[in-house]
Amino acid sequence: MADDGETATVKEPLDLIRLSLDERIYVKLRGERELRGRLHAYDQHLNMILGEVEETLTTVEIDDETYEEIIKTQKRVIPFLFVRGDGVILVSPPLRS
């Protein structure tokens, strides 16, 4: 695909990521992990550098007696991190206006 610079069109899927540079994005990862942070850089594998990140970990436990599912979420804030692209399921940019 030709690189047509900084146009605001989405001709291929990765354009959607390009348009999200310097914006806060949502990233869904394998293993029930979610990240919300500012996208500083990415490549074609979807390796990403994120800043001011909030990580959410979701775990489901089964109560020993009632067998009810207990959904627990843990959150933590990480100032700066690298995401390896192969763990990425979905990236959602902020709404464009």
Binding site: P13, L14, L16, I17, L46, G85, D86, V88, I89, L90, V91, S92, P93, L95, R96
Partner: peptide, 11 residues
């Protein structure tokens, strides 16, 4: 529900 989103193809 998502407005825009990208899904990585390997999934």
């Amino acid at each position: 529900k998502y407005g825009d989103a990208f899904i990585r193809g390997n999934n």
